[in-house]
Design a protein around this nucleic acid. Structure first.
Lengths: 221, 221
DNA sequence: CGCTAATTTGACCTTAGTCAAATTCTGTGG
DNA sequence: CCACAGAATTTGACTAAGGTCAAATTAGCG
């Protein structure tokens, strides 16, 4: 008996489904590994299926005109990647790259689409997830347009802390700047301020939140 | 015989469906009118159904901490509003307000969800639409983070021109600023520049594009 | 241990935001 | 049709946030 369905149950959109419901999938699921900096998928290529992230972190980003990456979100274990594009006949508009060594369970496009077709619960989970993300993006846009870099940084640190859980946030300064939407130098100066204010601890690449309430205050409502 | 299904066929997500397929809906569709500045739906309230916009323009926005509106998109005839939230049990996170007098065909939540459940094509149309919008938002975010206000203004004018079609863009300076993501005064100064460069014509509130290629150049790739 | 890449600091400057005042529009009532 | 009040738009002056460029320092890895 395969253990794959159990693993899928830890995934956001597959949660709440029984072994039986997921069972039929297990024969189709393919395990993959990606090294750090490996490319999970790339803008302009066509989706072949969905990627269930069991271990590691992935950055999802879009390159602007100048080539600078804008990070749209950071995915951790439990996230399912690539299903946002699998419904259209269009290429990816975003790229996904490993920040760590990854363990991924891959489900082919056809299998995934069949699952959606046949399973009402799954369908609703996907629809809910897509709407939720659309709302998140509206908030992201509003913050980007209206908050200062300092506020956005505090906000970003708080959401990254959710992804990283107990572990410290571990991103290059450049990636963090590309997530907040600022220049690397500006980001570094503001991190320093937050450290001096006792809001965060810095161990080179590793950032720890020391005062969440304070950061929430800075981030604004 | 009702003409309502025909009207629905002009709607983005209902396009490509036959009279027969849409026919069963017609008895459930309810016509509504909203005056200019009327509130179609408001953040924090619960969705009751979807709004098919037959005539008029609507701004969809989110209010930031300070109360300033960030306009997420401007909808024109053919757009279906509110279906992005109808799948969850959650309240709206965005508000929608009439920029014109509106003519709307309303479909109750239950009827709409049944339609999705029973009609595979409709389901796929909705999934495709949601993914497409998610990609749009990623681009919006990237532009906001990486482009100058001038570039974003050119870009915004080009996309608004799509919504307005043959008619001139007709928005208050404040709404336009809240769409571009800048201060009203900055927007006004840049509009003036574009006018002096021969890129646009200004008749008080009405803006006409005079040089699309030029605007595309300014907007960047 | 040394080399390369990443991070940090410093100096400078541009973009775009703020505040206040002036001007122009718009709709309403006479 | 005109006058007027209030709103929207425009202009000006100033400021500050944050970007850029170059140089110095540090970290990470073979």
């Amino acid at each position: 008996m395969s253990t794959t369905p159990t693993i899928l149950q830890d995934m956001g959109i597959f949660a709440n489904f029984s072994q039986e419901e997921l069972g039929e999938l297990s024969t189709h699921v393919q395990h993959m590994k990606f090294p750090k900096e490996g490319v999970v998928f790339e803008e302009h290529t066509y989706p072949k299926g969905v990627y269930c992230l069991a271990k590691g972190k992935v950055k999802i980003f879009k390159r602007g005109d100048s080539g600078k990456e804008q990070i749209i979100f950071i995915a951790g274990a439990g996230e399912v990647l690539g299903f946002r594009t699998v419904f259209s006949e269009e290429p990816y508009r975003l790229s996904a790259e490993a920040l760590d060594d990854l363990s991924i369970y891959f489900i082919g496009k056809e299998d995934f689409l069949n699952l959606i077709d046949e399973n009402k619960g799954m369908r609703n989970a996907v629809l809910r997830e897509l709407s939720r993300e659309l709302n998140d993006k509206a908030l992201f846009i509003t913050n980007l347009a209206q908050k200062s870099v300092r506020e956005r940084l505090a906000y970003s640190l708080l959401s990254l802390a959710d992804v990283y859980g107990k572990e410290p946030i571990n991103l290059s300064r450049e990636d963090l700047a590309n997530y907040v939407g600022t220049a690397t130098e500006t980001l570094i100066r503001l991190l320093k301020e937050l450290k001096e204010g006792g809001f965060i601890g810095i161990q080179t690449r590793k950032l720890t939140l020391l005062n969440r309430k304070g950061l929430e205050m800075i981030a604004g409502k």
